[in-house]
Amino acid sequence: MVKKITNLALAAVILSSILLNSCQAVKNSSNEQRGVAIGAAGGAVLGAVLGNNIGKGGNGAVGAVLGGVVGGVAGGIIGNKMDKQAREIDNALPGADVVRVGEGIKLVLGENAVRFDFNKSTLTSQAKANLDKLVKVFTEYPDTNIVIYGYTDNKGAADYNLKLSQDRANSVKAYLAKKGLAASRFTTTGMGMADPIESNDTDAGRSKNRRVEFAITANDKMVQDAQNGK
């Protein structure tokens, strides 16, 4: 089931109202300029404060999604497209954790979807099979940018884990590109042992923390189409 953050628009309006009303220059700004300010300020702040509303972990993905908020009618059009894409991802890969956030999608590929062995960044055969299912959806929705975040458990030095997490994200990107998706759509970031989704005190918990997350947002073409009512 696709999860969806509720009351996000209300929170953005309240937050943006506070921020905008504090600036005299806003009185002379256009609606478009105000929308840009709302998207930038609301996304940055809400990305930090709403993490607890979508479960543990994923602050990187959440921040990336909320940072790209367009707002207004265009934002609604983008949101509808993301609703459809999220449902297709959920149907294609039931083992994934799919969350609709704002105008984008946070996708967590844990051990049931893309599992990494301890101290490894290579993709298992199961991981490749599950990524193949994602390729079909990403091919159908080409007008998105995707940030891939790699994670580790807490075993080992922080610097080592940061590199390992980057290698994991790069492995996923390389595989998706090999399957025909444009590499330019993807950005990779290693998060190391940050944002654990389970306790690192057990083997089972550490296994779940060795994961990748995706932040899926509209690219420039999708934004432009939405602003033109498409």
Rank of each mutant, 00 (worst) to 15 (best):
D117E: 13
V26C: 10
M82V: 04
Q224V: 03
M193A: 13
S199K: 04
L20A: 09
G150A: 06
N219A: 06
Y160V: 15
Y149T: 04
V69I: 15
L8D: 06
L15Y: 13
I14P: 00
A226D: 05
A92H: 00
D201Y: 00
Y149A: 04
S29V: 06
A157P: 04
N80L: 08
I146S: 02
L10Y: 07
G58F: 02
I146V: 14
E88V: 01
N91V: 01
Q166F: 05
A157Y: 06
I197D: 04
D153Q: 06
A96S: 13
A182M: 13
V13S: 13
N91I: 01
A48F: 09
R34M: 14
V49Y: 09
D201K: 07
L162Q: 15
K106S: 13
G75M: 04
G156A: 07
I89L: 11
P94K: 00
V101P: 01
G205H: 02
V69A: 12
V114M: 03
N31H: 09
N170W: 01
V65C: 12
T202N: 00
V45D: 12
V36Y: 09
K178L: 15
D201I: 00
V147P: 00
T122N: 11
E88P: 00
G190H: 06
K120D: 12
L164S: 05
K155I: 15
A74K: 04
Y149G: 05
A12F: 01
N130M: 10
K106R: 15
L66H: 09
V114E: 03
Q224I: 02
L164R: 09
A37P: 02
V135I: 14
Q24L: 14
T124C: 07
G79F: 03
V99F: 01
R185P: 13
K84E: 12
G156H: 06
I5T: 12
K208L: 08
G72I: 04
R100H: 02
T188W: 01
K136W: 09
N52Y: 10
S121R: 01
D132W: 06
N52W: 08
V26K: 07
E213R: 03
C23Q: 15
V65R: 07
G47K: 05
N219T: 07
A40I: 14
R168E: 04
R100Q: 13
Q224P: 00
L176F: 02
N119A: 13
G51Y: 03
G110E: 06
